[in-house]
C-alpha cells in the first residue's frame, strides 16, 4: 500500500480524529461513554455504518443527482443503521438495551454524513473504504478512551470488572457533567500531543 493510501487510513486515528480534533458526533460521545463496553459497542456500530455508507455513496456518486444528494445519503446511511440496529438487538440484547436510542441515532451522526459529503462523493471506492475505516477507528479510540476514564473514576471498574470499593467512586463521572469534563480534558491532551508531533516533524524537515 502506498504512503498516501496509508495516510488516508491513519489520519482519522489522531491527526484528524473526528471527535477530538474535528469535534463531530458530540452527542453519542457524551451520552454513551459511561462504560468501556458501551463505548466500544457504539464505536464499532458507527465504524460499520461509516465503512458501508462511504463505500456505497462513493460507488453511486455519479448516479446521485447533486440537488437531492443529502436525502439520498440519509437513505443509504439509514439502511445500514437499521441493519446494525437489528443485528445488535438480535445478538447482543444487553448492549442494545444500554445503548438504547443512540444506535438508531447514528443516522443523524454528523461524522457519517460529514465523511459522505466531504470525502466519499469526491474519491474512489477504495479510498472511501479506507477513510471510513480510519474515521471509525478514530471515533472508537476516542469513545473508548473517554469511556475508560469515566468508568474507572465513576464506577471503579473496567469492562464491568470492579476493582475500586464503592466508597471511593466519584459519582460525577457517571453523570453528564463528568462527561463534559473528561471530554474536554481528553481533547486538550490529544491536541497537545498532536501539535507537539507536528512541530517535531516541521523541525525535522527544516
Amino acid at each position: 500500500m502506498s504512503n498516501s493510501k496509508l495516510n488516508i487510513l491513519t489520519k482519522g486515528f489522531f491527526k484528524e480524529n473526528p471527535t477530538l480534533i474535528l469535534v463531530l458526533g458530540c452527542c453519542p460521545t457524551l451520552a454513551v461513554t459511561t462504560s468501556v463496553t458501551n463505548a466500544l459497542g457504539m464505536g464499532m456500530a458507527t465504524t460499520f455504518v461509516l465503512l458501508m455508507s462511504n463505500m456505497l455513496i462513493s460507488a453511486l456518486k455519479n448516479v446521485i443527482p447533486d440537488k437531492v444528494r443529502i436525502p439520498s445519503y440519509i437513505v443509504i446511511i439509514a439502511t445500514f443503521v437499521s441493519m446494525i440496529d437489528l443485528l445488535i438487538q438480535g445478538f447482543l440484547p444487553s448492549l442494545s438495551a444500554s445503548l438504547g436510542v443512540f444506535i438508531p441515532l447514528i443516522v443523524v451522526n454528523c461524522i457519517v454524513l460529514g465523511r459522505a459529503e466531504a470525502f466519499a462523493n469526491k474519491n474512489s471506492v477504495f479510498d472511501s473504504l479506507l477513510d471510513g475505516l480510519g474515521m471509525g477507528i478514530g471515533f472508537t479510540i476516542a469513545l473508548t478512551l473517554i469511556g475508560a476514564i469515566r468508568e474507572i473514576l465513576g464506577s471503579g471498574s473496567i469492562m464491568g470488572f470492579q476493582f475500586i470499593p464503592a466508597e471511593y467512586h466519584i459519582l460525577i463521572f457517571v453523570l453528564a457533567p463528568g462527561a463534559f469534563l473528561v471530554f474536554g480534558f481528553v481533547m486538550a491532551a490529544v491536541r497537545y500531543i498532536v501539535n507537539k508531533s507536528e512541530e517535531k516533524k516541521k523541525q525535522k524537515e527544516a
Binding site: E167, I170, L171, I172, F173, P177
Partner: peptide, 10 residues
C-alpha cells in the same frame, strides 16, 4: 458543587 454531586453521601 462538584464534590456535592460526586460524593453525595460524604
Amino acid at each position: 458543587v462538584t464534590l456535592l454531586i460526586a460524593f453525595p453521601v460524604q
